[in-house]
């Protein structure tokens, strides 16, 4: 028997031995038991060889986090559902590349909107034929809509999109107030543009997130994947043009009228599309505003409450009561639910 002259390194290299260690089966078990019975002096080598075989691993093997895990699965499943025309192989491949560009764009709209003006100025010739649709997701609710080109839109609480029933041949234009996540069907011939009165974000085929709440002070465009062109949309806003790559963000401060381009440190900005409520070092004032939209409630503050105090935390679409319990558990204030109104009172 050849194995009696093997040391542990030679055993660790032997396919029959390795196979036994990694995929044990009755036959191999029997063989190696017999071998050890015949050659008891080899038991140390067999043990060491087993150790070598089972102790080699990747020193760095990255894993998907929960959000990425779920997002990727959803992307794959939605690929399955959207029926793709069976084009010639490489044509389909080329188009598919576009779908893969996922961008998340966040716009925060600071003032009231006159979307009709945009609509008419962008589409003077289509004016008569346009039948405009409005999808609205009131405070405290979320919804998903499918557009005529097959693109999907997730609408966050307190948000609204306005778009033509049929898009034109040259442009797919959507007007948004609030926050939405777009999964755009590929169509290089018809750019997909999301408009607000301060910023435009344009892509050819992508998935992206837009936040444009009228009562927020900051407009932000943030990209998760792909490439998005961001420009100012009106003359009163500072003139700029940014091409954003993954994990880059343009933020426009409406009050000071300044624009910065920066790198995102995490994917927190996209968390809501998984129905996750995430705060990262955010002042209480902003957190309460977000909770008002998310749960469709209103807060009333009484007493000395420091709304500039910052908090971090994350919730998986938990009931409001859970969030309130956590928020008030370690702090100086109490809450009281009065229907859709929530009273926050200072303990001191």
């Amino acid at each position: 028997m050849k194995y009696k002259d093997f040391n542990h390194w030679e055993l660790a290299e032997d396919a029959y031995f390795v196979n036994w260690v990694l995929r044990p089966n009755k036959h191999a078990d029997k063989f190696w038991k017999q071998f050890l019975a015949d050659h008891p002096e080899k038991s140390e080598d067999v043990l060491l060889a087993r150790e070598i075989v089972t102790n080699i691993r990747y020193s760095d093997k990255p894993r998907l986090n929960d959000t990425e895990y779920n997002d990727l699965f959803e992307r794959i499943i939605s690929t399955k559902r959207s029926k793709r025309p069976s084009n010639v192989f490489y044509v389909r491949e080329a188009q598919y590349r576009w779908v893969r560009y996922v961008a998340a764009v966040t716009l925060v709209l600071a003032s009231a909107i006159l979307y009709n003006q945009y609509w008419l100025s962008s589409h003077p010739s289509d004016e008569k034929t346009i039948q405009t649709l409005v999808k609205e997701s009131p405070r405290g609710s979320k919804l998903t809509a499918v557009l005529s080109d097959g693109s999907k839109v997730k609408l966050n609480a307190g948000s609204k999109i306005t778009y033509p029933k049929e898009f034109s041949d040259t442009l797919r234009l959507i007007y948004l107030t609030g926050e939405a996540f777009f999964e755009v069907e590929s169509d290089p011939a018809r750019p997909f543009r999301v408009k607000s009165d301060k910023v435009n974000a344009e892509v050819l085929g992508t998935s992206f997130n837009v936040r444009a709440y009228p009562d927020d002070r900051k407009i932000s465009v943030a990209v998760a994947e792909g490439k998005v062109k961001v420009t100012n949309a009106d003359q009163s806003t500072v003139r700029f043009e940014h091409t954003l790559l993954p994990f880059q963000e343009s933020e426009i401060n409406v009050q000071s009228n300044q624009v910065v381009k920066r790198e995102l440190q995490d994917d927190m900005i996209f968390a809501w599309t998984n129905w996750k409520l995430v705060f990262k070092e955010e002042p209480l004032s902003l957190i309460l505003k977000k909770l008002e939209r998310w749960y469709g409630v209103e807060f009333e503050l009484k007493g000395a409450i420091k709304t500039s105090e910052t908090y971090s935390g994350s919730f998986d679409n938990d009931p409001l009561k859970v969030v309130l319990e956590v928020l008030t558990s370690q702090d100086a204030f109490d809450y009281e639910i009065q229907g859709r109104k929530i009273l926050i009172t200072s303990k001191y």
């Binding site: 929960d66 908090y311 702090d331």
Partner: peptide, 16 residues
Amino acid sequence: MKVFSESSITSNGELK
């Protein structure tokens, strides 16, 4: 900065 809890619900519970 204060940190409050992480929700304990696993987000891929439904997938599993």
